[in-house]
C-alpha cells in the first residue's frame, strides 16, 4: 500500500498527499506518518514545494479530523439513548471533557494509531468543537511540519527516520497501556484492605 501511495505522490504531488492524509484522518489505514516524512524528503529534492505542500496537507488532515469528529457528534443521539443513565458513560464523558484536549493533541503526532477513535469519542462525548479544533490544528501542524521537516533534513535517508518514529509511537503506546495497568492494579490493591476492614 505505502509503495503505491509513494509512487502516486512522486507522479501527482501535493493534491494526492492531501487526499491521502484526509482519507487517513477519517479512518482509512494509510501509513500517514511515513508519507509525511517522505513528502519532506521530496520537498528537499525539489519535487514538492515545502510551504504549499505543508499547507495543503495541514488543511486536508484537519478537514478529515473534523469530519470524523462530526461522525461522532451525529452518532451522539443514539449513543445517549442507549447509555444516558449508565454511570460508566457519565464517568467516561466527564473524564474525556477533562483530559480530551491533551488526548487530541498527543494523538495527532505521537499516538497516531488511536487518533481516529479519539476524534469519534470527542464528537460523541460532546467535547466542545472549538477546543477540539484548536488542539487538533496545533497537533497536526507539529505532525506535518515537524515530521515533514525531519524528512527534509534527512533527505534520501528518510526511511530510517520513519522507522524510528513509528517505533517511538508503538513504544509510547505500550508504556501508556502499562502505566494504566499498573495504576489500576495499585488502585485495586489500595481499595482491597478497606473492604476487608469494613468486613
Amino acid at each position: 500500500m505505502s509503495d503505491f501511495l509513494l509512487t502516486q505522490i512522486i507522479n501527482y504531488g501535493a493534491p494526492i498527499l492531501g487526499a491521502i492524509v484526509l482519507i487517513g484522518a477519517m479512518g482509512a489505514p494509510f501509513p500517514g506518518t511515513l508519507i509525511v516524512i517522505a513528502a519532506g524528503a521530496f520537498a528537499k529534492q525539489g519535487l514538492l514545494t515545502w510551504y504549499s505542500t505543508g499547507l495543503i496537507a495541514l488543511t486536508c488532515v484537519v478537514i478529515g479530523d473534523n469530519l470524523s469528529y462530526a461522525m461522532g457528534h451525529f452518532a451522539r443521539e443514539p449513543v445517549l439513548r442507549r447509555f444516558q443513565d449508565s454511570e460508566n458513560w457519565i464517568k467516561a464523558e466527564t473524564t474525556f471533557n477533562r483530559w480530551g484536549g491533551m488526548s487530541v493533541f498527543w494523538t495527532r503526532f505521537l499516538l497516531t494509531g488511536i487518533a481516529v477513535p479519539v476524534n469519534l469519542i470527542a464528537g460523541t462525548s460532546g467535547f466542545g468543537f472549538r477546543r477540539f479544533f484548536i488542539y487538533d490544528l496545533v497537533g497536526e501542524a507539529i505532525w506535518i511540519f515537524g515530521y515533514g521537516g525531519l524528512g527534509y533534513l534527512f533527505g534520501t535517508q528518510w526511511e530510517v527516520v520513519s522507522d524510528i518514529l513509528s517505533n517511538i509511537s508503538g513504544l509510547s503506546l505500550g508504556l501508556i497501556l502499562l502505566a494504566i495497568g499498573i495504576w489500576l492494579s495499585v488502585r485495586q490493591l489500595k481499595t482491597r484492605p478497606q473492604r476487608n476492614e469494613v468486613l
Partner: peptide
C-alpha cells in the same frame, strides 16, 4: 493491559 503494554513496549 499490563501484558499488552509489556509486549508492545518490548517489541517496539
Amino acid at each position: 493491559l499490563i501484558v499488552l503494554g509489556i509486549l508492545l513496549a518490548g517489541f517496539f
